Amino acid sequence: MTAKKMRLGMSLWPPYLGAGVRVTHIADDWSSATVTYRISKLNRNYFGTAFGGTLSSMTDPFYALLLMHQLGKGYVVWDAAGVIDYVSPGQGRLTATMVVDPAVVEQIRVETASGHKSLTWFETEIVDESGSVVARVRRQVYVRKTLVKPGVAAA
């Protein structure tokens, strides 16, 4: 799948579409993704601000997706943990940009080459239109090389 198709598909994914979350960019080399969330009368909480769960969902799949595509076939990749610190009430248009540096990808390749798992933490901030931090998010991604059974060709 291309980054462009993934961006479109994720923006039309019902949980994101209904919540007002849009994937505005995925780099062609899968090194970064940018996601926005515009708070409106239809998707705000009781206090008129962003739902905490929606803020968390903005970053949820992206580090795993970016890593999966950069690593290529032969790896098991999944989101293992998430921590979010709410800094200020989210209002207006919020943005999160997730970046996976190629050096980190190479480090994960080294860590998993012998069959061991890699647990890597990634961090991003969700900011409002003025650049003020609304939330700080940490995501841990699990990676392990796919085990190949003897006598079975690897995919």
Rank of each mutant, 00 (worst) to 15 (best):
D60H: 08
G74R: 06
A19N: 04
G82A: 13
T24D: 08
L55W: 06
D79Y: 13
N43I: 03
W121Q: 14
K5E: 14
G90W: 04
I26G: 00
A19V: 06
V23E: 08
V21E: 06
E111S: 15
G72N: 11
T34N: 03
E106M: 07
G72H: 07
V133S: 06
H116Q: 14
R139I: 03
K145F: 06
T34W: 00
A50D: 10
A153G: 07
E129I: 11
S40G: 04
G18A: 14
T124C: 06
T49A: 02
T95R: 09
V104K: 06
A50V: 11
T54A: 06
A19C: 08
W30P: 01
Y86E: 11
M10C: 11
R93Y: 04
L94Q: 06
V110G: 08
Y142L: 15
R136L: 09
V137T: 06
R109I: 12
V21R: 05
K145C: 12
G9C: 04
L8P: 02
A64W: 01
T124W: 00
D79A: 15
D101R: 00
M98Y: 03
Y142N: 11
P150K: 07
T34S: 13
F122K: 01
L67G: 12
S130H: 10
T59W: 06
E123I: 01
R7V: 13
A3I: 04
Y86G: 09
T59Y: 05
A3Q: 05
R38M: 02
K145E: 11
S40Q: 08
V141T: 04
V105Q: 13
V134F: 03
T49C: 00
V76K: 15
I84D: 03
F47Y: 14
R138Q: 10
M98C: 12
A153E: 13
G48H: 11
L66G: 00
S32F: 02
K5Y: 13
V104Q: 09
S31A: 05
S40Y: 03
D128C: 04
M1A: 09
Q107L: 11
